[in-house]
Amino acid sequence: MTTRISRDELAARIAQDIPEGAVMNLGIGAPTLVANFLPAGLEAILHTENGMLGMGPEPQPDRIDPDLINAGKQPVTELDGTAYFHHADSFAMMRGGHLDVCVLGAFQVSERGDLANWSTGAADSIPAVGGAMDLAIGARRVYVMTDLFTRSGESKLVRDCSYPLTGVGCVTRIYTDHAIFDVTPTGLAVIELFGDNTVSELSTLTGLDLEDATRDADDKELA
């Protein structure tokens, strides 16, 4: 019985939902994988919050330019059509609702779409927020990419976040290794299941009331 897809498979699944012409920001870590799976021929523009639209892939080792990095401070390249701008403009683009999509990681997402992804609140940790709070409230569609459960088996989808919040009610959709969830006014709705997962099992495992909004559910209603 298969109940999980790999991180690459999840990145590929998210990439299918990026529309032609989208301007998007991929958060540091797993979300950057989405760029590897964008369909050939799709023209989408990557934004990096340190001040660039039109970001290209990692350079060959002998072409690393220390003046050309992404938000994760990794070397990148510029594509034809690239524009550079200062930091206040870069975040104005976000805050002003000009970005179509951002993909972010998460520690927890609440059933109302609250996001916690910047701090575990541990007493000895050094806090660092970066652009997480601006991204969370800025893009028109905020996608979360995450495992559904922590290593110790706790659900990352929760009634209320126990970790410090990044943004309130800001998440549009959650792509997990078990299923895809939409945030709706009445709670979380499962729109797609991976492997042998069922909505009722996921409801039990997460402890949440999940609406079945999968295509199968439509078929059942029609029948």
């Binding site: 930091h87 870069s90 975040f91 805050r95 701090s119 652009g131 997480a132 709070m133 601006d134 943004g167």
Partner: peptide, 30 residues
């Protein structure tokens, strides 16, 4: 600790003679 976009806009505001501004970033957070 300041959210990055708020940090940038606070700096921009100072240079533009704006005393303060209302931003959605960080609302409802610590």
């Amino acid at each position: 600790l300041v959210p990055q976009g708020n940090l940038a806009e606070r700096i921009r505001a100072a240079g533009a003679g704006i005393g303060a501004f209302f931003t959605p970033s960080g609302f409802g957070t610590a």
